[in-house]
Design a protein around this nucleic acid. Structure first.
Length: 287
DNA sequence: AGCCAGGCCCTCC
DNA sequence: GGAGGGCCTGGC
């Protein structure tokens, strides 16, 4: 099914910029699992081509624009954050890259898997979680698995998660699954909450600090001002934005500084700076 | 062969 | 409150 798109969209950089971990390039196509479907996408002039299973394409197509962040007015966002040459260069290079609007539960668990790790390993951890505890889905001869429900993952338990190679993150994943399954935290309503309220709710979870929480807020909970400060973004800020005396402030202080500096769409600035720095390192032979 | 990686938490000051 | 050290595992 062809899905027409009016707004600019760089599908490749959107799906491979470290926001989500289940998209696999396959020639011109990208294959992922969203909305309990195997979804295959290919960029075409004027839109994207969609294949999915088991649901009908007409059912998934309306959800796609939402997931891909096409509701965001990119030009307005660029005008808001393009206040210096570094950001402007990143925008020029990755114009059309979007901040995804993911399913909050999967996004939370994915980023709990992220501390002191790397994208290939996080991707493998998430995929292993799905294959072991999620329901299998097929599309022709292709087999993938849904992301497990909170109940299914809570049932798995820390020990089996460690067995998948999650390391010390296993305890946090198990605890978060239990909290969500028991209703101690309700993720989707946090989309309606203020940034500060949602941040507090997330950081109450074990294994969720300021950085992981800001990833979940930005990539799934409609908080475009969220600004995750990881080691790469921290380096960019210290090298190009902060004065000498400011360079040794804490990561949370950096986050507050950046939100003040970049404004209500600070999260977009974050994503462009992050992706730009990562691409540089990859081109330099490091991951 | 080590070294270190998309942080978090706990201890101690 | 904030600085410092330990943590699973694996990829280089």
């Amino acid at each position: 099914m062809f899905v027409p798109i009016e707004q600019p969209l760089d599908l490749s950089n959107t799906l491979t910029s470290g926001q989500a971990f289940r998209w696999r390039p396959d020639g011109e196509w990208f294959e992922g699992v969203v909305f309990a479907n195997i979804v295959r996408l290919r960029r075409r002039p004027g839109g994207i081509e969609l294949r999915c299973a088991p649901d009908d394409e007409a059912l998934i197509a309306p959800l796609l624009g939402d997931y891909l962040g096409l509701r965001d007015d990119l030009e307005a966002i660029y005008a808001s954050i393009a206040t210096d040459d570094l950001i402007k260069a990143a925008i020029a290079r990755y114009r059309g890259m979007r901040v995804l609007r993911q399913e909050p539960w999967e996004c939370l668990i994915s980023f709990i898997c992220s501390p002191v790790s790397n994208v290939p390993r996080i991707s493998r951890n998430v995929e292993d979680i799905c294959e072991n505890f999620g329901r299998r889905i097929t599309m022709g001869d292709r087999v993938r698995s849904r992301f497990p429900t909170p109940e299914e993952l809570a049932e798995a338990g820390e020990k089996r998660l460690r067995g998948l190679g999650l390391g010390f993150r296993a305890a946090s994943v198990a605890a978060a699954a239990r909290s969500v399954a028991d209703g101690q935290i309700d993720l989707v309503p946090l989309r309606e909450s203020s940034y500060d309220e949602a941040l507090d709710a997330l950081t109450a979870l074990v294994g969720v600090g300021d950085k992981v929480a800001n990833c979940v807020l930005l990539f799934s909970l409609d908080k475009p001002e969220a600004f995750p400060v990881d080691v790469h973004v921290s380096n960019v800020l210290r090298e190009s934005y902060l004065r000498g005396s400011e360079a040794k402030i804490s990561t949370k202080a950096m986050r507050l500084w950046a939100q003040e500096h970049f404004g209500r769409y600070a999260g977009y600035a974050n994503q462009y700076l992050f992706h730009g720095r990562r691409q540089l390192r990859i081109n330099a032979g490091r991951t």
